[in-house]
């Protein structure tokens, strides 16, 4: 049926790679968007590092004073970062003390016990809790929790105190711990639970002694992220924990965390190149590095955990 080859309208195909200029431009733009995040990190390190370096280059600021003393007032030559770190430690510790057991227990209930219907009611509640802006938690800490604490402890507790801020921070972090832990628990294969049940274990024995240990690394990642969140949290402590560095581990006292200090000082009149200004960047750099390390560890743990069950 074919016409003879001579009569065919012969067409040449050109399959050579064509250079499509618009495709290339678009791809270049997308690549730029992709690596912008790298520049963000570099910018954080560079800008924070540059100013922090100015601070540490002041002859009066020595590493010994920075890490070895406990009074922080750069304006008058006191550079003891522990005055701020102590408050960060206390508030974060209280927050973890609250959020870890509560979040973990909620996660176990949601993952192992709750019916789908129960879960569909309870999870949105936790999501709402997670979505409330931290400044609102600050209001709650100062104007609800503190008065309650005061009614129990009277004058033993100061109006601004680390306990109230820490407690509310714990409530703020609870949904995070709960949802990450629940993911970890749900990722434990069903066959492990069945293996335990088949040996005559109760639901509790299975949940606590088999599922929980199996999910431990995922829960560990949740804890680390929780700590990182607590260390970086600003508004609750800025509102409720107090303003003024105070080297103290007594949660009933007022003290200022690293974040709270940055917020208060930068919120006031701050002239560039002053020691107050550069010292804030030194603190911010510390915060960045600490949370960066915590986040990296957590990601590493999560990836290890995934490999285990894949």
């Amino acid at each position: 049926m074919k016409p003879p080859a001579e009569a065919q309208n012969f067409r040449h195909f050109d399959l050579k790679k064509k250079f499509r200029i618009s495709e290339s431009i678009i791809q270049a733009l997308l690549f730029l968007a992709g690596i912008l995040s790298i520049f963000t990190t570099l910018a954080i390190v560079y800008e924070l590092g540059k100013e922090a370096l100015l601070f540490f280059n002041i002859p009066d600021v020595t590493l010994g004073k920075f890490l070895g003393t406990t009074k922080w007032q750069p304006g008058i030559g006191q550079y003891g970062i522990w005055a701020l770190v102590s408050a960060t430690l206390v508030t974060s510790a209280i927050a973890m003390l609250i959020s870890l057991p509560l979040g973990l227990a909620s996660a176990i209930y949601l993952s192992e016990y709750a019916s789908p219907k129960m879960r569909s009611i309870l999870k949105p509640i936790l999501e709402i809790l997670a979505g409330i802006p931290t400044v609102v938690y600050g209001y709650f800490a100062l104007l609800f929790i503190t008065p309650i604490l005061k009614s129990f402890l009277g004058d033993n507790i100061q109006v601004y105190n680390m306990l109230s801020a820490g407690l509310v921070m714990g409530i703020m972090i609870l949904p995070l711990i709960s949802s990450m832990s629940e993911d970890a628990l749900s990722a434990v294969p069903r066959s492990l639970r069945e293996g335990a049940y088949a040996m005559g274990a109760t639901k509790l024995e299975t949940s606590l002694q088999i599922v929980l240990p199996a999910a431990l690394s995922g829960i560990g990642a949740a804890i680390i992220i929780g700590i990182s969140r607590a260390v970086g949290e600003t508004m609750i402590v800025a509102v409720a924990a107090g303003s003024g560095p105070n080297f103290s581990f007594n949660p009933l006292e007022a003290a200022e965390t690293m974040t709270g200090h940055i917020a208060r000082i930068s919120g006031g009149d701050l002239s560039y190149n002053s020691i107050d200004y550069t010292s804030l960047f030194a603190i911010a750099l510390m915060l960045f590095l600490v949370t960066l390390i915590l986040n990296l560890i957590s990601q590493w743990v999560v990836n290890k955990f995934r490999e285990q069950y894949e």
Partner: peptide, 8 residues
Amino acid sequence: FQKPNPFP
């Protein structure tokens, strides 16, 4: 069970 499921 079908697949070995020792506890971790």
